[in-house]
């Protein structure tokens, strides 16, 4: 366990600058957008007040977040792309360079599946750290909004309302339903394991391994996608369909981890 945790830390440490850069980029773009949009709104209100025009209602933090759909989506999409590429790079960087890091990694006095799990855990830490950072940013941005907008123009809103007003948050990143969060990120975790095993297939069998990896991803993708879109409501009750889905996910997960551990322990060469 201790060795596994040390390996997790090693992987987190290696990606720390990239992670902090993503956080900085997210903060910079979102704060800039928020400040600009809020200033425009406040200016508009002041102008309306000066001309004696009556606006229908004050505006809230949720309104401003709703206005910033595209600007908020940009850093999130960039982060998704970077982390998506790093799912591959976290393995391949160990083989790249003059002094291959993989030599040292696979000769450590620990079971090799710890390497596999540590790399996966590191990816999950990065993803959830970015999501958590987004939540912290929203708290900070709400405070910033309250400082910038005079109370006579401001309407209070719930934190969940601000999250719900942005489609990227509510549909993908931070669904308000806890079970939805678990299901979405659970499928994401499963997808990471499938890609890891695909990388190991390629690393184990090289050129033919690419074909195996593509086939493996296609089969697992079809199984996961089939489970997601399982539409047998004409015969099954919803809870039964949920049980079938979970069985499919567990089977894919079990097979993927078994194959991944076997490849990393017995097949992989540097």
């Amino acid at each position: 366990m201790n060795r596994y945790l040390k390996l997790v830390h090693l992987e987190v440490h290696r990606f720390r600058y990239a992670l902090f850069s993503l956080m900085f980029l997210t903060a910079a773009i979102q704060i800039t957008g928020l400040v600009h949009t809020t200033q425009v709104r406040v200016k508009g209100w002041r102008e309306a007040a000066r001309l004696g025009e009556h606006s229908t209602r004050n505006f809230s933090f949720a309104d401003v977040i709703g206005d910033l759909q595209f600007l908020f989506a940009i850093p999130i999409l960039i982060s998704i792309v970077v982390l998506g590429l790093y799912v591959f790079l976290i393995w391949y960087r160990d083989w790249i360079g003059r002094d291959k890091f993989a030599y040292r990694l696979f000769t450590l006095p620990t079971v090799r599946r710890n390497v596999y799990m540590a790399k996966a855990t590191a990816i999950f830490v990065f993803v959830f750290a970015m999501v958590s950072f987004q939540l912290l940013m929203l708290l900070l941005e709400r405070q910033l909004f309250n400082w910038m907008v005079p109370s006579e123009y401001r309407m209070s809103s719930l934190f969940a309302e601000a999250v719900a007003s942005n489609l990227v948050f509510v549909r993908f990143l931070l669904p308000l339903d806890g079970i939805q969060f678990v299901v979405y990120y659970g499928i994401g975790i499963l997808a990471v394991f499938v890609l890891f095993t695909a990388v190991l297939l390629e690393r184990s069998y090289r050129l033919p391994g690419i074909v195996y990896a593509i086939l493996y991803v296609a089969v697992c993708g079809a199984a996961i996608g089939g489970a997601v879109y399982l539409n047998l409501y004409n015969y099954f009750y919803p809870r039964e369909i949920t049980a079938i889905r979970f069985c499919i996910y567990l089977m894919v997960m079990g097979f993927t981890l078994t194959l991944g551990f076997r490849l990393v322990s017995k097949k992989i060469t540097v």
Binding site: H9, V12, H13, R16, V125, A129, L136
Partner: peptide
């Protein structure tokens, strides 16, 4: 760094889904 990230994840996601996500 790792400890701080894990604490951040547990605290923010835990608090959000326990108290902040209900509309």
């Amino acid at each position: 760094i790792t400890s701080a990230l894990i604490l951040l994840i547990l605290a923010s996601l835990g608090t959000f889904y326990a108290y902040g996500a209900e509309l």
